[in-house]
Design a protein around this nucleic acid. Structure first.
Lengths: 336, 336
DNA sequence: CGGCATATTGAAGAACATCAAGTAAAGTGG
DNA sequence: CCACTTTACTTGATGTTCTTCAATATGCCG
């Protein structure tokens, strides 16, 4: 019989899940906060852990981080419970080594099948699985650095000394041409790695990174990074995936820049920001016009003109400097 | 004392090198063609092999390929001698596992230091080095396929079944938007891998590949490719490098598309083709105008107009459909 | 040599960038 | 907290760049 540890600060949800699992034939243990969760996990070594992300004292990420540093708990399947359908929390969780996630409110059968799947997987893998360990190994000698809005993390031309992992906040990667015009190459969110490209190519930085809100960045010394890439197939395979994904996105962007109208490019920029930073197709944030302009590769004035057009067409609303997307689908798909 | 095998069909050069090396205290063996070279290499197991690329019967690539399939000769440092300063032959050679190359005519001291370096490296590496084997392992179950101009190798949206290596010829990678306008994402030359991006991302092809002249392509079955990537650090590290290099190029292209004038973009397209396919800053080939246009992300008419401007400015010459670059530097650097 | 693909030139107009000028918002120092 | 400065945003007018449509020219292949 498998034991499942539930770490969740909301007592109602905690009891609800516990009951459900007991009815399904699992043994359960419960903890109401992160610290307690870690303690119980280390004591009782459950077969699977369900853990809320948002908790006082020690949050879900913290729990995962601590447990993945202990040999005994390293291989226990770890499933996040997350209240919002926030893609980015999820991505960060997966990066840190979570095995799955379930969004609340959840369907009972979804929860049960997710748990069964994870348990089955972990049993069939036997002692082989050490993914958590590997990814976390990257962070073993990390330095943590905080940046606020407009702080520059690295510059085009710098000799790279770190690979970067964005633990929280938002960062833009950009590139400037000779006339001083800038284009946003990529927007980073929490859970993203960045600035490692030139390391792998043994080159200077070819772009610069700047925080666009308060951000906590983990700095991985370049030697450490290279060593881990070389020694761990898990890590190198992860970065192969990241790079190729990134490459396909860039290809798409080249096509867009080459032939799409400014109107379309601005629309795409809004959609991209919404996908990255918004919630449920609603982007509700303060966005400098210059950011939008350089995502679309156009001038600030033109960007503003397009925004007014969208406003007139009832696709967006503008409240002082906050932009609210009203019709995500129409904005995304209209052929212009 | 180290023995060096010289494989070179030109007797003058052969004797010249042999003498030089003997004076420097090496023992030498010579072969006047590829087949003889392989035979002698396998018999006498030299400490280093110098090998011409262009030879009758069996060329340098063939020699390298055969020797890297034998356990005994696998780790012998292999240095190419190449007559033309052709970067692409070199790239292909390195991909296949050559350790260095020297262009003829060469400076004596260059040759000697290159040899010394290689010998030193190979001694310090001991039994560890098996790079040649690893890269060649990729090709163990390859299929060879020939394409002629305008043949499509794979299409956007296809489920990938192979990774591709261009052994000879030229291939363009392109992407089309909804209006049917095409942009060239990349030009491939012999020695290039392509079409592996989506494999690593477990995705459908996001671009299409088309031969632009008669080409011999090596097809690596997708499972084979994945297996090799997972199992060989050498290979995965090679592809990490390729991908990140590629990524940086794409970033640059995004910036170019966003802000450079058409004139500049056409100039860059010519420069890129010259770097890839030309010789000594001279591009002398039949180039369809449409290719130039879609490299620069513009219409054929505009591309032609720019070519006429360049002709008027004495930067290029146009002979029927062949384009000859007269002033490489000016074309590359003029700020427009 | 005719027919089809490719290349070239012209003219008109759409799409954008730039310059200029004004308004709103956000810091800043007393 | 208010005047003041600075920064960000917005709109208009103008001109350039590039696309598009159309017509003609050239090369290419059987």
């Amino acid at each position: 019989m498998s034991t499942i540890l539930i770490i969740e600060d909301n007592i109602d949800i905690q009891e609800n899940i516990s009951e459900l699992l007991q009815l399904s034939g699992y043994e359960t243990a419960v903890a109401s906060n992160g610290k307690e969760g870690v303690r119980i996990a280390l004591e009782s070594l459950p077969d699977l852990i369900l853990c809320d992300i948002m908790m006082p004292e020690l949050d879900g990420y913290g729990v995962l981080h601590i447990l993945s540093r202990h040999e005994e708990t390293l291989r226990i399947p770890f499933v996040f419970l997350t209240a919002k359908a926030d893609k980015f929390d999820v991505r960060k969780g997966m990066t840190l080594g979570a095995d799955d996630y379930i969004t609340k409110p959840f369907d009972e059968s979804d929860l049960l099948t997710a748990i069964e799947n994870r348990l089955r997987k972990s049993q069939s893998q036997g002692t082989y699985q050490n993914k958590k360990n590997d990814i976390n190994a990257l962070f073993q000698n990390k330095q943590i650095k905080n940046y606020s809005n407009k702080d520059i993390i690295y510059r085009d031309g710098d000799t790279p000394s770190y690979a970067y992992f964005l633990n929280s906040g938002k960062v833009k990667i950009q590139k400037m041409n000779k006339d001083g015009k800038e284009v946003i190459i990529e927007l980073c969110n929490d859970g993203d790695f960045f600035g490692y490209w030139s390391i792998l190519e043994n080159n200077n930085q070819q772009d610069s990174a700047e925080a666009i809100e308060d951000s906590e960045v983990w700095l991985i010394p370049i030697d450490e990074f290279k060593k881990n890439i070389e020694e761990s197939p898990e890590i190198s395979s992860k970065f192969l995936k990241l790079l190729s994904k990134n490459l396909l996105i860039k290809e798409h962007k080249i096509l867009e820049m080459a032939y799409e109208s400014v109107r379309k490019r601005i629309a795409n920029a809004l959609i991209e920001m919404c996908d990255k930073y918004g919630e449920e197709n609603r982007l509700k944030m303060k966005i400098p016009r210059e950011l939008i302009a350089s995502m679309a590769g156009t001038s600030v004035e033109t960007a503003i003109r397009m925004l007014s057009e969208f406003k007139k067409d009832n696709l967006i609303e503008i409240h002082s400097s906050e932009i609210l997307i009203l019709d995500y689908d129409k904005l995304k798909n209209s052929p212009f």
